[in-house]
Every structure is written in C-alpha cells, then in structure tokens.
Computed example of a mutant assay.
Amino acid sequence: MTFAAIISASRASSDSTAALRASLHFAGQTLVEYQARQAARAGADRIMILVSVITPALSQAVDRLSADGIPVALVRDMVSMVRDAPRDSDVLLVADGIIVAQAHFDAIAEREGNALLVTDDSRASAPLERIDAGQRWAGLARISPDLLFGTLDMIGDWDLSLTLVRAAVQSGARRVTVPQDDLMTGRVALVDGQAQADLVAQAVMSAGSTAKRMRGAGEHYILCPVARMLSPALMRTQVPATQVRIAAMALGAISLVPIELLWPAAGFLMLLLALGLAEIADRLDELALRSPPAGWTAFVVPFFAVGGISLAGGSVMATCLALLLAIVQLADRWRKTGAARPWMIFTPASAIFLLLLTAIFGAISLGFELAMLAVIASVGAIILLKRA
C-alpha cells in the first residue's frame, strides 16, 4: 500500500531564532532534505514539508529533491494540507529535527494503519516528546486517513505533529519500540543545533549506508576500504560529491599523458588514484542517501582506465583486454554480475593495480598476460554463475 509523508519543518534552531532546525547542515545537505530522502527510500510516493515560513534554504532543498525525482511540496497552512493530503492512503509523520535510522523508517512504513515509533522513558530519551508515563515518541508515526482528516477538521492553531500523535495514542495505535542502545549511539536523536547535528551525522556515517551492491576485486579489497575511511571526513567538511567526481575525471584524463610518454607506472598510479576518487564520490552519494550515478558520468573514469591500458600495451591483446574490462565494468555497475563473488569480478581497477605492480618490477608484459587470463576467467564466472 502506498503512503505519503508529512515532515514538520518550522521550529527554530537553538543556534539562532532566525534559523530553522530543518535548515541545519546534515550529511552534505539540509536536515529536512535528508529526512525526505529517508521517507522516499522507505516508499513514500509524495512528500509534504509543513513550514511556517518558506526560506531560501527550504526552496533550494525542494529543488534538489525534485531534480532527483522525489515528489515534494511545501505546505504552509491547514487549508493546503487538507487539499494536498491523500484521502485514500496513510501518511508517514516525521517530527521536526528528528534523525532516525533507515531501518526504523522501513519498519513503520511496513505497517498499515496507525502506528508509533516509541522509546522507553529514560535520561537518553528526555529530549523526545512524552506520550504517557512510561514512553516517549521517537519521531515517526504512521497515520490513517480517517485519523488525519479527523484531526485536521478540529486542529485550529495547534501543533499538527503533536496533535496527531496524541490522537494516535488515544486511538490505541500499535507501538514499535526503539532499543535504548539506538538512542545512545545516535541512531535516534532529536537535533536542535548545528553542533549536535554534526555529532549525530558522524555517528550515522560511522554506521555506514544501507546501500548494498556487489563490487569488483579492486574496488572491494582496495578502493572501498579507503573510501569508507576518507568519506566521513570529506562529508563533515561539506565537500560535494560532484566536485570529487569532476576531480577524478580530470585526473583520469591527465594520467594518459605519462602513459603516452612511456612512463606506465606513473600513469597507472594516477589512474588508480582517479578510480579511488570516483569511489569516494559514490560513497559520499550513498551517505547522503542519493543513488550513485548509473549513466555516462559513472563510466568516464573507467573509460580513461581502459583507454590507458590499451595505450600502454600498444597491441591487439591490450585492446582486447581493454574491451573485456569495459564489459565487466558495465556488468559491475549495472549489477549484472549474478552470483559472482567480489574476487571473481576483474574490473579495470583490478587490472590497473595488477599492471602497476608488474610495471614497477619491469614485467609489464607479464602483467598484460595475467590480466587477460583474469578477465577471461571473470567473464566466464559472471556468465556461468548468473542467477536465473
């Protein structure tokens, strides 16, 4: 069953009365933008951001979300809410300034009818809204259309989120309890200022993203661990993934120069660094809950890598190796590697690493022969182990 999402974004930050919690920087974007991406990932087919005033930061967040294909709109009053809210599906209510792990979003999204994400009353949950003597609201609720519109009819100037939560409690909504460990580790937190947002973002990024995709040997064993180590620091300094990806493209193009000048080791090292930067850009996208690109921008750096391999070899075998590596790269990026394990997937990054080692020891011809055997075995594994 489809559902919509209502995100509250009107409370002021503790940093300044002129700044909103929703506009705090979080994981390379505004806080409300991150919440909207979480709701969309959980299955929301439309998102309404309830605001008291439309600020430039909120408008820009809506533009970025819309550019990524997430249907989102700003709602300023109850009249607009009554007009825009769906009458035939539930809504996912998200509290102002709340950060909740994606697993909890998915858990609430899987339930139909009224449901609340709650946590036991404790010192760790003190910032959250109390709903009874023993529990507090953890910032997420699924509300049925009857309860939503019944509340909108009588809400007046009251706070929509808290009023809906009270109504859900009185109606006997099912409760999903959050473990206290999630509050202690930042998987559930109410963010009030930028310093707190930075701490919670660090905890979220340390836990890693929820995205899972098979990677080739070079990426899985070399590039991904480095990207996981460096990406949180870049995210905290607000370095955009787009700029990192552009730097990777530029370095990939420059790396062809030393290869043309018969300095293959230097060229392969630069290509490996370029592929690492591209992997970091993908990691930054995943941390921000954006899907890494699957179009032409995803293949620019690998294109330079296979081009460099063909240029360095200067033979038919090197060109055939480059073409086979391009095929494996496409299969890896588009998740068509079947049941092949990472060590079976010989991507351009894997070949560059092998050729770099052999070039350092003056055995680059042997490197090309080993790479050709490895990529042939890789293609065979992908074909033979392809899932039905």
Score class of each variant (00 low, 15 high):
Met1Glu: 13
Ser14Val: 13
Ser14Trp: 14
Ser16Trp: 04
Ser23His: 03
His25Lys: 09
Ala27Asn: 12
Arg41Ile: 09
Ala42Pro: 10
Ala42His: 04
Ile49Ala: 01
Ile49Lys: 01
Leu50Gly: 01
Leu50Gln: 03
Val53Asp: 12
Asp63Trp: 03
Asp63Glu: 14
Arg64His: 04
Ser66Thr: 02
Ile70Glu: 00
Gly97Arg: 06
Gln102Ile: 09
Glu110His: 12
Gly113Phe: 05
Gly113His: 02
Ala115Pro: 01
Ser122Gln: 05
Ala126Gln: 12
Ala133Glu: 15
Ala133Trp: 07
Ala133Gly: 15
Gly134Asp: 15
Gln135Leu: 12
Arg142Gln: 12
Ser144Pro: 06
Pro145Ile: 07
Asp153Cys: 05
Asp157Val: 08
Leu160His: 08
Ala168Leu: 07
Gly172Glu: 09
Val176Leu: 14
Pro179Ser: 15
Asp181Tyr: 10
Leu183Ser: 09
Arg187Asp: 07
Arg187Met: 14
Asp192Lys: 12
Gly193Val: 11
Gly193Asn: 15
Gln194Ala: 14
Ala201Thr: 06
Ile222Thr: 11
Val226Arg: 10
Arg228Asn: 11
Ser231Glu: 11
Pro232Gln: 06
Ala233His: 12
Val239Ser: 00
Ala248Arg: 06
Ala250Leu: 15
Leu256Phe: 05
Leu256Arg: 02
Pro258Ile: 10
Pro264Glu: 03
Ala266Pro: 05
Phe268Gly: 01
Met270Gly: 08
Ala274Trp: 00
Leu289Trp: 02
Pro293Leu: 05
Val301Thr: 13
Ile309Lys: 01
Gly313Val: 13
Met317Asn: 11
Ala318Ile: 11
Leu323Tyr: 11
Leu325Lys: 05
Asp332Glu: 15
Gly338Lys: 00
Gly338Thr: 09
Ala339Ile: 08
Pro342Lys: 07
Trp343Gln: 15
Met344Pro: 01
Ile345His: 08
Ile352Ala: 07
Ile352Glu: 06
Leu355Phe: 09
Leu356Gln: 08
Leu356Cys: 06
Leu357Phe: 12
Ala359His: 05
Ala359Val: 09
Ile360Asp: 04
Glu369Gln: 12
Ala371Gln: 02
Ala371Leu: 09
Ala377Glu: 08
Ile382Ser: 04
Lys386Glu: 13
